[in-house]
Design a binder for these strands. Sequence first.
DNA 1: CCTGATCGGTGCTGTAACGCACAGACCCGC
DNA 2: GCGGGTCTGTGCGTTACAGCACCGATCAGG
Lengths: 252, 252
Amino acid sequence: MSVTAPAKITNRLVQLLPADEQHQLLLQCEVVDMQFGQILCEPGQPYPYLYFPLHGFVSLLAPLSGHIPLEMCLMGNEGMLGASLVLGIETAPMQAIVQGKGSAWRIRPEALQTLLEECVQLRRTLQQYLFLQFRQLSQSAACGHFHELPQRLARWYLMSDDRTQCDEFYLTHQFLAGMLGVRRSGVTVAAGKLQKQHLIRYNRGMVHILDHEALRQMSCECYGAGLDDYRNILGIPSTGALLRQSFSTNTP
Amino acid sequence: MSVTAPAKITNRLVQLLPADEQHQLLLQCEVVDMQFGQILCEPGQPYPYLYFPLHGFVSLLAPLSGHIPLEMCLMGNEGMLGASLVLGIETAPMQAIVQGKGSAWRIRPEALQTLLEECVQLRRTLQQYLFLQFRQLSQSAACGHFHELPQRLARWYLMSDDRTQCDEFYLTHQFLAGMLGVRRSGVTVAAGKLQKQHLIRYNRGMVHILDHEALRQMSCECYGAGLDDYRNILGIPSTGALLRQSFSTNTP
DNA sequence: CCTGATCGGTGCTGTAACGCACAGACCCGC
DNA sequence: GCGGGTCTGTGCGTTACAGCACCGATCAGG
């Protein structure tokens, strides 16, 4: 079994569980790669699998006929895909697609359903995470309506960075445009501004985050609100700036 | 007890419950008036009460500093305020405010928590309704981003009409502007178009729906999607056009 | 090495909103 | 009947996008 992955490569929701529940859960999981662009579920369709990302990240998208699906929620190893199963409903509310390739523990919905009946903390954690998604959804909706592109873009870069945890990831303007529901050339202009100010650097899709702090000041309040929510609801910091600090002081 | 209200004035979620659960629930409820503009809960704060609207309707709003809160979800007697309690979390995810005055059954969160442990169908129904809200949230987010004001406005009038069930309600342009996240004068222009086409008529806040069918054609797909969702998830038609038909054929 | 595809920069025009301001119509209370 | 508040209509300049088009730079494959 690949349970004994490197310490940092794990899933933070699973980490919250007591040892016995972790063990039960991981017995039912298998490690899989997530390919860039892979579609993990479709709205209204049953989940084929549920995923606990280890690295890489996944987007939840809301499709609207005649438009490219709009991103509602970004999910890395601080979250999971399929928390709505805790409501006893087997169909997915939204589309999920892999935005940053990586790996995940995956589990069959039936298996998780069974576990949910026995494991108190697992159920509790999934409930909390679902509540968190609820908050994020409403935050993103308001953000997309009121805030302007450069701010939203900065937020997006920061969120992606938090979830990849390596200051470098692959993301073309074209793709970002889809997520944010704007034109590709709009992204180019906004990203160009950030690059000119040396907050980021990019080339043919590879993005480097150069200055977190300045990027954060450029971004809208929604980024910080997301971090706060995570801490308040789950009781631990998300993979955000706070976590990065504690990590960087711990690295040898 | 005021449980024996007129047959049509009830809550459709409660109606879904078996008789014994209904009885248990209503024993813990009291009937209250909902005043226009009354704030029923605040995001991040515990719910003082939970509400099953009987008539009138309530909005869920997402606040963003520097802006008027944006509406995420509209709730009449087809829904309830506080379904997120089924996740075991006592704080409200969003603000709720009374948009159309009316009445409701209200219950203390602790009382509902207790009932949830015993009543299987109550829990199931609240879970389904929460899932539905999840869908509506993402739909509204995408709608607010891509669709244009006249379409969104038509949708809003239809949704309000469904929830008041009387083709006439009080809603000023100013208020609508807040809900939709646009200027008041923008609403005036859009509503003026609808009035010129004889789809609605309004005067100093009193709105009459004149032509449902035409209004529906004018509205975006999101209106129909909401009705479909309700039927698919809860298994009964919402208080939408379909229901109105069956009602109108039943009235003496 | 050529070819085709992808990525990103740039520049137009068009438009749905914005912010702001003002004025008429109507209602209510003193 | 007067005055103040609310509701609605309207106009103006501004702005952040959309939509479209075209370009060069870079990369991958035969």
